[in-house]
């Protein structure tokens, strides 16, 4: 498990996968894109780690012990504004529907293109901000203009919107 030091304007990600080589490489790539990344290789570690605040979590669906769906349920119950993206080696309509019912924002099949993950992260972060500031019309309007286009640029701009209140 690793926990990166955050600076005030970083999006905080929790990444959980039992495939440690995958976890470490993905974490490295996300950190180089200015995310604050905390990793966990199983559900229990993730729950311990998730006592802090995270913006988005990326969870592997199939893990030993507590699986991704169970972890998704627990995290959603305890973190009101946390958006969750599920990763799986085998995407099926049934599991996608089940994860969506449990509150997952997105569902990606491995291996994926990182640009695709960045686009889903952008959309997840936008949804988080809309839920967090539902009555802030000015912020909503600005968010709508950021909803498409380059994911990294949009994420940085959204982060500034999130920071306005902090």
């Amino acid at each position: 498990m690793t926990n990166a030091q955050s600076t005030p304007s970083q999006i905080k990600l929790l990444v959980v996968d039992d495939e440690v080589d995958f976890l470490n490489t993905l974490s490295q790539r996300l950190k180089s894109r200015d995310f604050q990344v905390t990793t966990a290789s199983n559900g229990n570690q993730a729950i311990q780690e998730a006592t802090g605040e995270f913006d988005v979590a990326i969870l592997d669906l199939k893990m030993p012990g507590m699986d991704g769906q169970e972890l998704l349920k627990i995290l959603k119950e305890n973190h009101k504004f946390l958006e969750i993206i599920m990763l799986t080696g085998y995407a099926s309509v049934e599991s996608a529907v089940e994860c969506t019912k449990l509150g997952a924002f997105g569902y990606l099949e491995k291996p994926y293109d990182l640009e695709k993950l960045m686009a889903v992260l952008r959309d997840a972060y936008e949804t988080r901000l809309k839920k967090k500031f539902p009555h802030d019309q000015k912020r909503m309007k600005e968010l709508d203009t950021l909803a498409t286009g380059d994911p990294m640029a949009a994420l940085r701009a959204m982060m500034r919107l999130d920071d306005l209140e902090k």
Binding site: E19, D21, F22, T25, L26, R29, K62, G89, Y90, K110, P111, Y112, L114
Partner: peptide, 15 residues
């Protein structure tokens, strides 16, 4: 499923 996991690691490293 196992092969997909291998591909995911290779894919991340290529990235």
């Amino acid at each position: 499923h196992e092969i997909k996991n291998v591909l995911a690691v290779v894919n991340e490293n290529a990235g």
